[in-house]
Design a protein around this nucleic acid. Structure first.
Lengths: 145, 145
DNA sequence: GTGGTTGCAAAGACTTTGCATTGTT
DNA sequence: AACAATGCAAAGTCTTTGCAACCAC
């Protein structure tokens, strides 16, 4: 079966919190993993709905919160709402978004991570997390005029 | 009079767009500048309301959009909503937020700016803007346990 | 006077919550 | 059997919009 690792992580989390491993939660997780990119709850809900018609929006919202909590999904707030996206082990990724077409790239850069840690330290903070969004014009859109 | 520079910027912008310089807009700008920190529209509205009771929430929303557009305010989206905050000439600033107490520090760091430009370029993007939020525990909260 | 601006209330978009029912353990 | 989870709809938030009255230019 697909997504063994992720399901194991989810199961472990579910058990550790004395929650129940419902069909719906597994389906949300599966669709989320298949899509494998940044999406809004609404987009995710539509895709799930088309495959499993009687799943509620509320369940999608509730499940995505769990996925974030157990580290299987990241959460990014953009101008037009929240996006969920896959998170992989140990590599925090940042975002590069095209302001013209909305294209979404991910960045993994150790230098930035280190620089951030240093800056936080200078200000007396212990860094827990960060979120970096770069807005620009992607190569495709540069050609278009 | 206070805030000469900012008012001049705002006026110029207003004129360039054929808008009108209403009392309300000036009041919103003034209170925003007096507060001089990151706040939600709601907080700003309450402070304005206490000074000028018959100003509407919609006007505050509308004016803050203008202030962002003319570069007098920055806009940051946090988990619990949008925050507006002062922007100063030519120095883009990033944010450092304490996850315990909500303390809000600003960071200005040229290295980060340069690194970001380079990364965007590597991916074929022309960088237009960026938003960096670091989440950590501030020095005060570290002491508290 | 023209046409942008306002306050208000209504509408919208997104998200959460209450509750009776259903499902997991 | 106990109690968490679900779907639905209702309720909450935050933000935008429509509109008649109003005001800057």
């Amino acid at each position: 079966m697909e997504f063994e690792r992720e399901k194991k992580i989810f199961n472990k989390f579910i058990k550790s919190k004395n929650l129940r491993c419902s069909d719906q939660r597994i389906k949300v997780l599966e669709v989320f993993l298949i899509i494998n990119k940044h999406i809004s709850v609404d987009e995710l809900y539509k895709m799930i709905k088309s495959k499993y018609p009687n799943i509620g929006m509320a369940t999608v919202y509730r499940t995505m919160k769990l996925l974030v909590e157990c580290g299987l999904s990241g959460e990014t707030r953009l101008n037009d709402g929240v996006r969920y996206g896959p998170l992989f082990r140990n590599d925090h990724h940042d975002h590069l978004i095209c302001v013209r077409c909305g294209r979404f790239d991910e960045i993994i850069n150790i230098e930035i991570e280190n620089l951030q840690k240093r800056i936080a330290k200078e200000k007396g903070y212990i860094l827990e997390n960060h979120e970096l969004i770069l807005y620009g014009i992607c190569s495709e859109c540069q050609k278009k005029k």
